[in-house]
C-alpha cells in the first residue's frame, strides 16, 4: 500500500515548506505521497514548479483562508 506522509509547514517561511517536501520525498518509495500544509504564499508557485521540474506529480492543491494543502506523488 502506498504511504502518505503529512508535513505541517505552516508558519515556515520560504524555503521551509519546499525543502520539507523535498526531504520527505527522499525518504519515500515511488508511488508514495506527501501532503504539505503551507502558509507561505511563495509555495503556490514554488511547489508546483519544483514538482514539474523534478518529475513528480502534483495530485491536488486546496486553498484555505490561512494556508494551502498540496498533495504530491513520488514518480521516480
Amino acid at each position: 500500500m502506498p504511504e502518505r506522509e503529512v508535513v505541517d509547514a505552516r508558519g515556515m517561511p520560504c524555503p521551509g515548506p519546499l525543502i520539507s517536501l523535498i526531504t520527505a520525498l527522499k525518504g519515500l518509495a515511488v508511488g508514495d505521497e506527501v501532503e504539505v500544509l503551507s502558509s507561505d504564499r511563495g509555495s503556490n508557485k514554488d511547489i508546483p514548479t519544483w514538482l514539474n521540474k523534478a518529475g513528480h506529480e502534483l495530485v491536488t492543491v486546496e486553498t484555505f483562508p490561512d494556508h494551502c494543502r498540496f498533495v504530491a506523488k513520488k514518480l521516480r
Partner: peptide, 10 residues
C-alpha cells in the same frame, strides 16, 4: 540554489 530563485529573501 535549492529554490526557484537565487536567494531565500526575495
Amino acid at each position: 540554489y535549492p529554490i526557484g530563485r537565487l536567494h531565500a529573501l526575495e
